[in-house]
């Protein structure tokens, strides 16, 4: 709680191993959730455990966490290798191991030639890589990435996501990825927690959450989707045109009707199957539903 504001409330979630996405609109409580995971704030009620350690312990939790902050937070007058080594030592590595690990992780993230330059001279992409390297240097079990692709150009974003994916797929390593960029989360994470207004509004396996009801079909139509949906509605079917396709309520014989309408309209049915939503669609749907529930 911050003053009278309850930043995260009634959050009960058991997060499995692997890559976990943390998404939510601004003010949803993501940052507070990350502070909780890092043991920097304590819950007013309830308990939380990270890797088997109560977050109230703070230091033992942070020994096992590598945190990559969203904002620029590097010490500008240090060199890349100097900063990563220093952070390794502050994490508890001895001097020799810290230097050796710093070189290893800088090579992994792709900062090799520039490692002896001062951070003040680095580009945004290189700074992001240094932030990733300092999170990796002590080989933590849990990585927390807060908006890792912020400020990166498309190439830099792809490189960063590739690095995050490699870490997430490594045995014994877990990732919490907090991002506004839902496609990033969708490509990396297997499990997702969605927060809104300090509450958890959904949590579960991404594939399960995104696969919608078996009672609905999604049709990818080349042609006028709105006209196609209108013709379906005229036949008494429940249909809706969206940017991802035409969604139809399943009924016996619906497939035949769909192909007849396509033939009549000269449209091409490119895909017809169980409705699968994108994370963005699912997220917007949940947030709208949550806002409606709150206003009631």
């Amino acid at each position: 709680m911050f003053g009278e504001v309850r930043a995260v409330d009634d959050l009960s979630v058991a997060i499995p191993e692997g890559a976990i996405g943390l998404v939510g609109p601004n003010g949803a409580g993501k940052t507070t959730f990350l502070r909780l995971l890092l043991g920097l704030v304590r819950p007013t009620t309830g308990t939380a455990k990270v890797l088997g350690h109560n977050i109230a312990e703070g230091v033992p939790v942070r020994e096992r966490i590598g945190y990559m902050p969203e904002h620029d937070c590097l010490i500008p007058d240090m060199t890349g290798v100097g900063l990563v080594t220093f952070m390794g030592r502050v994490s508890g590595l001895d001097a020799d191991t810290a230097i050796s690990r710093a070189h290893d992780v800088l090579q992994f993230v792709g900062v090799e030639e520039e490692r002896y330059r001062k951070i003040a001279e680095y580009s945004t992409g290189m700074k992001q890589k240094i932030k990733l390297a300092q999170a990796m240097v002590h080989d933590p079990q849990l990585y927390i990435f807060d908006e890792p692709t912020t400020g990166l150009d498309p190439r830099g974003r792809t490189e960063m996501l590739d690095l995050v994916r490699v870490i997430a797929n490594s045995p014994g390593r877990n990732v919490v990825l907090s991002s506004h960029l839902l496609p990033d989360v969708e490509t990396i994470c297997k499990y997702i927690v969605i927060l809104d207004g300090g509450h958890q509004i959904a949590a579960g396996e991404l594939r399960q959450l995104l696969s919608g009801s078996a009672d609905r079909l999604r049709i990818d139509v080349r042609g006028d989707r709105e006209a196609f949906a209108q013709r379906l509605r005229e036949t008494g079917l429940e249909a809706e045109a969206t940017p991802t396709g035409v969604h139809v309520a399943r009924k016996p014989g619906v497939e035949g009707v769909i192909f007849e309408i396509a033939k009549a309209l000269g449209a091409e049915v490119r895909y017809m199957g169980r409705e699968i939503r994108s994370l963005e669609e699912f997220f917007l749907e949940l947030v709208e539903r949550n806002e409606a529930a709150v206003s009631v």
């Binding site: 890092l38 920097l40 703070g58 230091v59 033992p60 942070r62 020994e63 966490i65 945190y67 902050p69 904002h71 620029d72 937070c73 590097l74 010490i75 500008p76 952070m87 502050v90 994490s91 508890g92 300092q134």
Partner: peptide, 14 residues
């Protein structure tokens, strides 16, 4: 100013 405090306090120190 540099927000390096974030780096320090996300480490295992109080």
């Amino acid at each position: 100013n540099s927000m390096a405090l974030t780096l320090y306090l996300s480490r295992p120190i109080t």
